[in-house]
Nucleic acid binder design. Structure first.
Lengths: 232, 232
DNA sequence: TTAATATTGTGTCGCTGTGACACATTTGTA
DNA sequence: TACAAATGTGTCACAGCGACACAATATTAA
């Protein structure tokens, strides 16, 4: 006997990594859901995720990205940790912990790939309630949505639901879809100009009316947090 | 062979729960640190925490509370998840994940108990840098501090560093210690009155000058988030 | 060619909440 | 009795968002 720690003294909980990948498509907030191929909850819709591969994943961030890329074939434009969900009851196999990530992507980046597969699908967030969802994923999605809505009020995260080049009108529309309220175009422009996070593109684009100024996110900048929330 | 999932297909990462318990004492922000009695990092200071007891802990919240109570003999007044930290390198025993909680308590609640033990100690947050700290706990503490500072700007969480009854002056002092800046007494009073989160106590208390109004948190209320940050 | 419509972009006023600061109030102390 | 120290109140300025009018520019229909 030594003073080294016995690694098997405690049974480890079941540990998984899941992601809530959002996008805005057809003026609705959507979540990427996967039809489960394994027990438990086989056949139900669940969040994309799985076990850490401790031989190749250097962090759980890598696990989340890997699992998302398996389903979408691309990396999300934004990824951050949401929260861990744990409990003795949430998985029939025993005490389990799932570390949940919260991700954003432009619909165009994945749509072509998704449409060829029928076990991966964008599901309208308002339709989640009426579906049979695996584990506690319904609650998880709800929490992720609330976090996204909060962030949309004081930051520019919603740009990551848009392609590289975007217009004020597109960003306004995405934000409004996320928070479920209309916002003032003027307020959004003020934020875009003060954030020092975007650069203007010379070439303008048609949009049903006057040509629209295009923007892109400056490379290497962090998300700016504003000191006030939008309200309306 | 069946279609049931083989629970041993993947090796599970090492999973622990740690907490960053803050308090404000002697006009300084302090963190509860524990002198490690086991390998690895035996003898170094580390965060209070440990493994989940999957036979008795119903969630990881319970694990965090249990571990904190082992060290302080009381439950913290505020507890929320901070973030999970993971990696192949952060623990010499292999890939590990620690789910970190962020907690607050009034110094008075624990001081008497702490002072009788020499392997548990309040450490000034500014002195952490110059100490030898286990694992990546130095980084974790830094992140927890940043979160606390942010929250102090738009919420009333700092009250959980105070005893049940407190004055505006005490709350002002605690907030200023946390964020490292002075704030306007007037702004704080406006927030206290508009938050509808506190009730006034009839009995006033002496404070070196005029008698001070006492407040307490209304029972059963949630933390209020304001729509603006304090700045100054 | 002209008018109607749609969308983008700008100018401006009001509102709210914070910062700043003066001043009154109340207690302890020299 | 005067002064210091802290609490509590009143008020003005400022920043940023909401609201809205209006100008600018492109498309479409008469």
């Amino acid at each position: 006997m030594t003073n080294t720690y016995d690694i098997n003294e405690f049974k480890n909980p079941l540990f998984t990594v899941d992601s809530v990948l959002f996008t805005v498509k057809d003026d609705a907030l959507k979540v990427l859901m996967v039809k489960r191929a394994n027990e438990p909850f086989i056949g139900s819709w669940g969040l994309p995720g799985g076990f850490v591969d401790i031989d190749s994943d250097t962090t759980t961030d890598v696990t989340a990205l890997r699992k998302l890329e398996e389903k979408t074939s691309v990396a999300p434009q934004y990824l951050e940790q949401l929260q861990a969900f744990s409990g003795i009851d949430r998985d029939p196999r025993g005490f389990s912990v799932t570390l949940v990530y919260f991700a954003l992507i432009a619909a165009q980046e994945v749509s072509s790939h998704i449409e060829t597969i029928d076990d991966v699908q964008w599901i309208d967030i308002d339709k989640i309630d009426s579906l049979s969802i695996a584990f506690d994923h319904k609650i998880i999605i709800e929490q992720a949505k609330e976090r996204l809505q909060q962030k949309a009020l004081y930051s520019m995260v919603p740009v990551y639901c848009l392609p590289e080049y975007f217009t004020v009108g597109q960003l306004k529309s995405v934000i409004e879809t996320i928070i479920g309220k209309t916002i003032q175009r003027k307020s959004l422009i003020r934020r875009i100009e003060s954030a020092d996070m975007f650069e203007t593109i010379d070439e303008k684009v048609k949009s049903g009316g006057r040509l629209a100024q295009q923007y892109k996110v400056k490379s290497g900048v962090d998300i700016v947090n504003f000191e006030r929330n939008l309200s309306s």
